[in-house]
């Protein structure tokens, strides 16, 4: 089971990173969301996986580690706030800059790039 879990964490990380590296703000927000799933699962798993062992006293024979759970609980909520902030920032950037590219301007066409490099520094 641990192997399967680790595979899922790795996959979510990879998908999240790939989308974070894209140029448009919405893809980056989606990527960050995927990445925060991965991070939460990863942190949670640092308390090790246990079945039927909720950390509620008297409910089970053994208890899972409550500390990572408490950390991840707040992380989920803060993660939502962060996603919200990022997406609103993306909206604002689009409204102010006229495009939704993370660099603030649309990438140059190949012809413009070659012009610039031949021009040299001012």
């Amino acid at each position: 089971m641990e192997g399967l879990y680790a595979f899922c964490v790795g996959l979510l990380t990879a998908c999240g990173i790939f989308l974070t590296l894209r140029g448009r703000s919405f893809s980056v927000v989606i990527g960050l969301t995927l990445l925060s799933y991965a991070v939460n699962l990863f942190l949670f798993a640092s308390g090790r996986l246990k079945l039927n062992a909720a950390a509620v006293l008297g409910e089970s024979e053994q208890y899972s580690d409550p500390l990572p759970q408490a950390l991840v609980l707040t992380a989920i909520v803060i993660g939502f706030a962060m996603t919200a902030f990022a997406v609103i920032l993306a909206m604002r950037a689009r409204a102010d800059l006229g495009n939704d590219h993370v660099d603030g301007n649309l990438p140059k066409l190949p012809s413009e790039v070659s012009n610039k490099s031949s021009g040299g520094n001012k």
């Binding site: 879990y5 964490v9 990380t13 699962l41």
Partner: peptide
């Protein structure tokens, strides 16, 4: 980007597995 993403995914998965 795919290469970097897979690499990081692999590293994170490995750490997670080794940890668990």
């Amino acid at each position: 980007d795919l290469g970097l993403a897979s690499l990081i995914g692999g590293v994170v998965g490995t750490i997670s597995y080794a940890l668990m």
